[in-house]
Amino acid sequence: MCSPFWWRSSGGSDYERYASFLNSLCDCGTIRSPVCGHHPKDEGFLFREERISLFQTYRDLFKLLHKGIVYSKSVSWLFKLAPLASLAASLIACAWLPFGGMTGLFSFTGGFLLIAYLFGAARFVTMLASLDTASAFEGMGANREALFAVFAEPALLLGFGAVIVAPGNSSLANAISVAQNTTFSDYGVVAALAAVSFFILALAENSRIPVDDPTTHLELTMIHEAMILDNSGPDLAFIEFASSLKLWFFYVLIADIILPLFHVGLVARICGTFLIVFVLAALTGIVESSMARLRLMKVPQFIGSAAAFAFIAILLKGIL
């Protein structure tokens, strides 16, 4: 490795990269429907008996795009910026995300930092926008989001650190291709710990039980939902699409980390990614079905455990 800095992935044609990006756009909703119903307010798949349409998320988005918008008298331009920033950040993240061995649209040393910080920027604008509505509920949502981010951000970066930096790789795509050629004992434990860490984050960042309750109708207990109580029409569509993409992002990310453990070819890796994403969705459902929500002030400990897993994964690299 002549230089630790690296721009653009070495493998994969342009076509593949675009395909993986488009794939994210088309599939993120279909995974969200079975996990959380067509709306984050429905019960998990384990307790529903009639299947709902796989395309329900897209139907909802279609409807929202056709609806009008009601803006609050209190809001400024920032409120109108927030949905755009959320979706733009998620789009960039999915463009960067490698999929089943296909590299993302772009990749460079430290690209994961940009992605983490773009998510952070989207979160920041969303929190500000929710405070802009002058509503106590939205303030509550922003406040909780801000507090939990204090734990989630380090966990996210340490997770990436465990997978990318500690093993001496320059980017996620690079890390995946390197891991393809390592043995199970070298990579297995680290991958497992990082995957657990990211899974906890996925629950936290996508308002799942035990952090947030997607089925709640109650403003006082909401986190993410509380911040978007005042968004309507296309704005809401952008936000919902952005959160679908974010959920997809975390699932595929975990799949990307786990898959190199199985030394298989491209087609198998793509199928494997879908399989893992499906399993993760089922796992989310099972977690949601078997435990209650944490008391709000216990959530930091839960998210902190994600950081702890990543931390151990990094230290393990030094021991192994």
Partner: peptide
């Protein structure tokens, strides 16, 4: 199971 028809209750009238 109203949601199998794509119908649901919204918390906020904006939605």
């Amino acid at each position: 199971d109203l949601s199998r028809f794509g119908i649901g209750y919204a918390a906020s009238p904006r939605h």
